[in-house]
Design a protein around this nucleic acid. Structure first.
Lengths: 340, 340
DNA sequence: TATTAGCACTAAGAAAGGAAGAGTGCTAAA
DNA sequence: TTTAGCACTCTTCCTTTCTTAGTGCTAATA
């Protein structure tokens, strides 16, 4: 079992290492713990046996292992303890009620990236329970149409429709009218099934060449909402961290950032602020990812901060918690006010 | 003046250095020129005096200077000489008449990036002479509208409009109707002035609270087309080049790529394929940028290939020329066919 | 029993030296 | 104009040495 002083010691070592990026030696901690280096060394050895500390070589100081960081995050750090200075910076954003939600989120992540030198990512999309407000179809030429879909939160998306054969304009406008009649108010993720099971049977009776028309519209409307906004802030910040000191490290992490499945690895399903240290995340063993999900006012998505494992956990977690609370809480206040 | 053998020599040195990335020594070129290393050395010294060659240190072989590359590009390389293999790869794309223009361009740049290991960028936008086809306005709530603008080439853009005070629905739809009547067929870059000088005076007579409405619409419609598509292919490719062998080099070039004004530095105003070597380009002294402008079928923009100064100039220039010719020529053929 | 002093030991990192190799410039001869 | 020859220069790689910051272990101490 881990003793009280040992816990304190682990906490101190993590924080010291986070600050300096150098292995922590026993002497450094003497004053703090008012005991000799030998005592510290004994405790360090215990913590190493428990798997919380590592050495870079046989006679080096200690650095936290992945388990060490994990223990720190779970048991030692004081989350929710956002510093006054950090809070102040974020407050200026959330006090500005003019700001749109998306802008507020990106501005606050810009601040985090700026003051921490980590990389942050916002992954956003339309909430899947937003409802379809209007379908508009504009002809471009005899075979090409543009379908525009608008949701009740004001999100607009458009798709080009290519018809396999010429269809009279009236057929198109009849279909559009029908779609509007039957689809308005439908949550967008239910649109495909409603098309298939409710609209298709009806269209069949109204429209001459219904298969061509139906297929074209189905393709356009069912792939809606597949696109996601992704915004990186400070993509190169993480390169400033001393852990990326060799060319290969840098190339490696950059190519991970650029890779196609990066986006899917940012998504967070959990509702709290979660910390994924090293091998716990799918991006790279050398980084820590702090993520959370948000959902408010027709928008939902994930926010992630990516930094070295040697990360200022307390700071990042507490700032992310603060942001999450304020975008979800704060913006609901705002919506209520507007409704009055 | 530069003699014939010296030209040959410079050409050979550029090409050898491009291939190997190591300074070229006099011995290497003996067989090729059927003379002794001393002769080569004399000529090299001349070329160095003329500013076309450099040494990395006093007893090293020679590498081309920026002027050397420039001379090579202007006088020595055989452009238009695309290799059969490269041509074949590009042909498969341009023969595929199914492909949309944008896709054809990005596919061909993917190929270039793949086979050369350089980075390519496409900067595209709607042509400024495209014409407005339709304006649609959808209300979201009492104060918020979505304006959707469609051009004759099927490009759609939308902007949210926030009204400063409540405006009756009829006023909005009257305005929309008016806009459609007066703006259809207007080239999009003429929309702002037409709003100001033709629409504003008319609106004044029809609409109660015309200033609020006019301002809201003006903001929405005049900032249209400001957004540009940017697509990088192989952003990390250039890191594979041996010139980026130190961490600082890599970090430096990456941060240039990420910087905000990168996009503006890609734009090419010249109609030919142009080569910007080292300090000639604004991105970074250590890279060469090969750029060209294209304009076809409602789209226009620039294409750029970014690689080390030690670039396969002949290959890149000839491939880019081939692509430019084919997207502009080829797609016009296609358009004509479709019109028949 | 927990702490401490002392000491032998280890690895990293920086500095210095040396040898090999690739290439040059210059001189003088062909 | 070309070439052979030679002294010279730098880079690169390898080895050695020294310093330093740290360790583990043992034995003494509170």
């Amino acid at each position: 079992m881990i003793g009280t002083r040992q816990k304190e010691l682990l906490k101190e070592i993590v924080e010291e290492y986070v600050k300096t990026a150098r292995p922590v030696g026993s002497k450094t901690l003497c004053k703090k713990f008012k005991c000799s280096s030998a005592t510290i060394r004994n405790d360090m050895a215990t913590l190493e046996n428990l798997g919380y500390l590592e050495k870079t070589h046989i006679s080096s100081g200690r650095i936290p292992s992945e388990e060490g960081y994990r223990y720190y995050v779970d048991n030692l750090m004081e989350a929710k303890k956002i510093s006054g200075e950090d809070m102040l910076k974020l407050q200026t954003i959330f006090n500005n009620k003019e700001l749109e939600l998306d802008d507020a989120i990106s501005k606050s992540l810009e601040i985090i990236s700026d003051i921490t030198n980590y990389t942050s990512v916002i992954l956003g999309k339309e909430s899947s329970d937003n409802r379809l407000q209007k379908v508009e179809v504009v002809p471009i030429d005899s075979r090409q149409l543009i379908a525009i879909v608008i949701t009740d939160t004001g999100h607009v998306e458009n798709k080009s429709i290519v018809l396999e054969e010429n269809i009279p304009t009236e057929e198109i406008s009849k279909t559009t009218e029908l779609l509007n009649k039957m689809l308005i108010g439908t949550p967008i993720d239910e649109v495909p099934s409603k098309l298939e099971f409710e609209i298709k049977p009806v269209i069949r009776n109204y429209i001459e060449n219904y298969e061509v028309v139906y297929n074209a519209f189905y393709n356009a409307l069912s792939n809606f909402t597949s696109e996601r906004d992704v915004k990186f802030t400070g993509k190169t910040n993480i390169l400033k961290q001393p852990e990326f000191s060799t060319v290969d490290d840098v190339k490696n992490i950059i190519s991970k950032f650029e890779s196609k499945d990066m986006v899917s690895k940012i998504e967070e399903t959990n509702d709290e602020v979660k910390v994924y240290i090293g091998s716990e995340n799918e991006i790279d063993d050398n980084v820590t990812v702090v993520k959370t999900k948000y959902k408010v006012g027709g928008r939902e998505g994930s926010i992630a901060i990516i930094g070295p494992k040697r990360m200022e956990y307390e700071r990042v977690v507490s700032m992310l918690e603060y942001i999450k609370e304020h975008i979800e809480g704060g913006k609901e206040d705002k919506l209520e006010k507007e409704e009055q």
